[in-house]
């Protein structure tokens, strides 16, 4: 069943398909999910979290810490610099500063330069991380987190957040816990975890959770579209569960950075 689903999903969203097929493939996707009904969430979660993810630390050498993440088509690289002297002339502060910046390459999206539209991501990355970083451990200084999206294939922001927390850990910045983030898309009655950009383009609603699994705290939560109470609870719990699993993967990578690329 899983192989069949895998094949159908990859057929649905293969990049060779002309644009006109997009709508009918969405209808097709809904059908697949209806076929699988209740188990759709779990199946797709396994499919997307188990198979296609690559995470590794240390792709850039100049930075204090860095990480690379690849989830399906989405490829993100994050470098962390610091703690270092604040560049801008700023007032004295007895806590450190966290400076986050997210940028897209011009070739990250189907239409050139479209990634520039996601201006709010820098602020959202900051909000997701600031609760986890122990800012009081580096007074008067700044930690810079620079994220670059090499290729945008959906669920960009959650992948940036997870990758940034891996890079922060690699840089040896003190944190209360690793922050992992997962988003879900709501299509009809079904909830899809880790949506691709095509799924995001046709979603009825979306929800993103950033979570600190060991502390059991949500650092960031955003929701769009129309949701009922029960559905929100289910989707948030699904995300938190996936965040915990993702966190285990991050911990493995930090413990044994050498063995990663092969997986």
């Amino acid at each position: 069943m899983m192989e069949l689903l895998d094949f159908m999903l990859s057929w649905c969203f293969s990049s060779t398909q002309p644009k006109g097929y997009m709508l009918c493939s969405t209808v097709f996707l809904r059908r697949i999910c209806t076929l699988l009904s209740v188990s759709a969430d779990d199946a797709i979660m396994l499919l997307l979290l188990g198979n296609t993810e690559v995470m590794q630390t240390g792709p850039t050498t100049a930075a204090s810490g860095s990480a690379y993440a690849e989830f399906g088509k989405t490829k993100v690289i994050v470098s962390v610099f610091g703690p270092r002297e604040s560049k801008k002339a700023m007032l004295y502060s007895d806590t450190g500063r966290l400076n986050c910046s997210v940028s897209y390459t011009t070739f990250a999206t189907g239409i050139r330069g479209q990634g520039l539209e996601n201006k709010e991501y820098s602020g959202m990355l900051h909000k997701a991380l600031e609760g986890a970083v122990m800012l009081h451990t580096f007074p008067k200084t700044t930690v810079d987190v620079f994220a670059l999206v090499l290729e945008s294939g959906g669920s960009d922001l959650p992948i940036i957040i997870s990758c940034a927390s891996l890079a922060l850990a690699d840089a040896g910045i003190m944190m209360y816990d690793l922050v992992t983030s997962v988003s879900v898309s709501c299509l009809g009655k079904n909830v899809l975890i880790d949506p691709t950009s095509d799924e995001e383009a046709w979603q009825d609603g979306g929800l993103m959770v950033s979570y600190m699994p060991a502390r059991k705290e949500i650092t960031q939560l955003t929701l769009t579209g129309e949701w009922t109470d029960g559905k929100i609870t289910n989707a948030v719990e699904l995300c938190m569960d996936a965040c915990s699993k993702l966190c285990e993967i991050l911990r493995e990578r930090l413990k044994d950075p050498a063995s990663l690329a092969s997986e």
């Binding site: 949500i218 579209g225 129309e226």
Partner: peptide, 16 residues
């Protein structure tokens, strides 16, 4: 009475 959007502000984490 349906929820159609949600944003969280502020740094501190919240229990689900």
């Amino acid at each position: 009475g349906q929820i159609c959007g949600l944003t969280k502000r502020g740094g501190a984490g919240l229990d689900p």
